[in-house]
């Protein structure tokens, strides 16, 4: 009789090709947070993109919503090894936000209420790959999950999907954000298991 446990055999990757290497399927939605949850009223919320020229583009909550919400159905993968498949969101495509922005820079630092930052190449935010998400599973996004709005970049590990996002700053070089300064990978592709440096 075998004594070697196959561990999470019922939900291992060999049974589910949608799970990147080293990930397991989560049924709940774990909450990760490096600080207190900010309490942000949408009446006070604003979003800013700052380019290398110093020019700032800003949107109020209503102006952002007026850009149009899209339905997003996607898998998400956290570097702490849980994945959720087939999650449903609504959000504003970054393509719409960048439509009127002039920049030569190839990298972006996302900023959040509370001071969190994370770096993402601009090309990973365009062409239907990223959103400012304001709804999850048919409801306004809970503060503990990043509400009222979070970045959603589901093809990268989920720490790149900055909670409580309030702005993007264009960068000439791929400078590290908060977790990236502390050992986590600069890019974070879950299919390549880019967890750490």
């Amino acid at each position: 009789m075998g004594i070697i446990s196959r561990g999470f055999s019922g939900r291992s990757r060999e049974h589910n090709p949608d799970l990147p290497p080293g990930q397991y399927l989560a049924e709940d939605f774990p909450v990760l947070s490096a600080g207190p949850t900010p309490d942000i009223d949408t009446a006070d919320w604003s979003f800013r993109v700052q380019t290398e020229s110093g020019k700032q583009y800003t949107w109020s909550w209503d102006e952002m919503q007026a850009l149009g919400l899209e339905e997003i159905h996607t898998d998400i993968h956290c570097v702490t090894r849980w994945s959720k498949l087939g999650t449903s969101w609504r959000g504003i495509s970054l393509d719409k936000i960048f439509a009127g922005i002039e920049t030569e820079n190839a990298y972006v630092m996302a900023h959040s209420y509370g001071g969190y930052t994370t770096n993402v190449p601009l090309e990973d935010l365009l062409d239907g790959k990223a959103w400012i998400a304001t709804e999850y599973d048919g409801e306004p996004l809970d503060p503990e999950h990043g509400g009222p709005a979070r970045l959603l970049v589901p093809h990268l590990y989920f720490w790149k999907s900055a909670k409580w996002v309030n702005g993007l700053r264009m960068m000439e070089t791929d400078d590290p954000g908060f977790w990236e300064q502390n050992g986590y990978h600069l890019y974070g592709d879950p299919w390549l298991e880019q967890r750490y440096w």
Binding site: P30, L32, A34, G35, T80, W159, G183
Partner: peptide, 16 residues
């Protein structure tokens, strides 16, 4: 101290 699964984050008890 916030025990985020990604790491431990310690913040000032006065100014955060």
């Amino acid at each position: 101290v916030y025990e985020d699964e990604m790491g431990f984050v310690a913040r000032c008890h006065l100014c955060d």
